[in-house]
Design a protein around this nucleic acid. Sequence first.
DNA 1: TTTTGAGTTGTTCGA
DNA 2: GTCGAACAACTCAAA
Length: 471
Amino acid sequence: MTDPAPLILWFRRDLRLDDHPMLAAAAASGRPLIPVFILDPETKGQGAAALWRLGLAVASFAGTLERIGSRLILRHGPAPDVLNALIAETGAGAVHWTRACDPPSRARDTAVKAALRARGVQAESHPGPLLHEPWTVETGEGGHFRVYTPFWRAVRDRAVALPAEAPPHLAAPAAWPVSDRLEDWRLDAAMNRGAAVVAPHQAVGEAAARARLDRFLAGPIDLYRTARDFPGGEHTSRLSENLTYGEIGPRRIWHAGWQAMDQGRAGAEHFLKELVWREFAWHLIHHTPQITHANWREDWDSFPWRGDNPDAERWRRGLTGEPFVDAAMREMYVTGTMHNRARMIAASYLTKHLMTHWKVGLDWFAECLTDWDPASNAMGWQWVAGSGPDAAPYFRIFNPATQAEKFDPEQVYIHRFVAELCQQPGPEALAYFDAVPRSWGLRASGHYPEPVVSLAAGRDRALAAYSARKT
DNA sequence: TTTTGAGTTGTTCGA
DNA sequence: GTCGAACAACTCAAA
C-alpha cells in the first residue's frame, strides 16, 4: 500500500504547536505532513527589526518541529511558485495554512488559493491569529464596529474555542524535500550592529512565550490596572512580541485571563481588554484595509501635516530634547519594543508638537519594532493623530513633561534609556550608542540637546492647526 | 425614525 | 495641592 498523499502545512505567523487549529486538524488527518516556511516578497519587505526577529522565530520553531519527529522546510520566492514546486516534488494533495488578515497577505492568499484549486490541489485556510473572525463580530445593524467599547461589550461574553493541545508527534513523509539554509537568507542583514544589542531583550519561541504568560499571571496581573501605565517597571505581559510571530495563541491567553478573572485577580479584566484591543485593530484592518496607508477619516486628508523633515529625524534618533520622548525612542531602538504609554507620548509628540504626518512615525516603528503588527500600529497612530477611530478630541495633546511627572516620577524610565541625563548611565542607556548607525555620530558623553520646540509653542501650533481644520 | 447616552489612555486654568 | 470646568461639538451604537 502506498502512503497517502502528504499535506503541505504552510506556516507564516503561527509558529507554535499549542492552540493551533490548522496543525490540530492536520495532525488528526493521519497523513504525512510537510511543514514549510516561505520567504516570499511580502515577508521579506518587512522592517529590519521584525525581519531579524522573524529569523529567530523560524529557527526556534524548526527546532520545536524536530523534537516531535518533523522538520521545517525553508524555501524562498513567490508563494505560488514555491508551493507549485513543492507539490510537484512531493505529490502533496493539499496545502493548509492559518488565515492572515493584513491586506497584502490576504491578496496573496486569495491568489494562491485560486491557483491551487485550478490545478486540483486542495487549499484550506484555518482560523488562528484571532479570537473571533473579523466578519463574525457585528453590530445590531449588521455592520462592523468603529468604536472600541461596543466592540468589547460584543465579544466580552462570547464563547472562545478552547485552545487545541499541541500534537505530540507529526507524521513525516517518506522523503523530505530539500530546504534552504536559514543563514543564507541573511534576515539580519539590515540590522547591522543593532542585533547584538536587541537580542537579549527578546523572548523567542513557544516555551519563552508561555513563560512570559506564566510570569505575568503569577504576579503582575494583580497590579495591572494601575501599574501598567508606569513604563519604568515590569508590569506588562510583553506578549505582543510573541503574538506577532504566533509563538503563543490568543485563545490560550484569553482562557488564562478568564481563569484569572474567575479567581478574582484584580487586573484580569483589563488584561483581557488589552487583548481585545488587538482584536479590534484586526477587526478594523479587515473591514477598512485602507487604515494602513490613508486617513481612516477622509476629512483629514487636507490636514497640513508635514512630511518627513529634520525635526522628525531628531525624533527618530531620540534627540528631541524631551526626555520622555527620547527615552521612548531609545527604548525601541535598544529593546525592539516600547511601553504602550510611551508609544502614545512619542506619537503625540511627532504628530502634534512636530506637526508631522503619522505615516512618518508609522514607518519608523515598522523599521524598529520586533512586535510590529500592521493592524495595532495603524490603529494606534491614527488614534493618536486624530484621523482614526475613537478620535481623540483635537485638544488632547500629550504633554511629555506632565506625563513624565505622572508616570515616571522617579525618572526611572528616563534614566534607564537616556545616558546624557544621568551620572552613571546603566547598560541599556549605553547600549543605545552601540546600536545606532555610526553615521549618526552619537556618543554617550555628548550633550543632551535643547528641545526641538518648546512644549507651549508646539502645543499652541498644533491646537491652531487642529481647530482651523474644523472651519 | 428619532433620540439618547457614551466615548482608553489629556491639559490647563482658576478657585 | 486639589478639584472641577472648559476645551467644542461629533460620531457611533442601540433603544
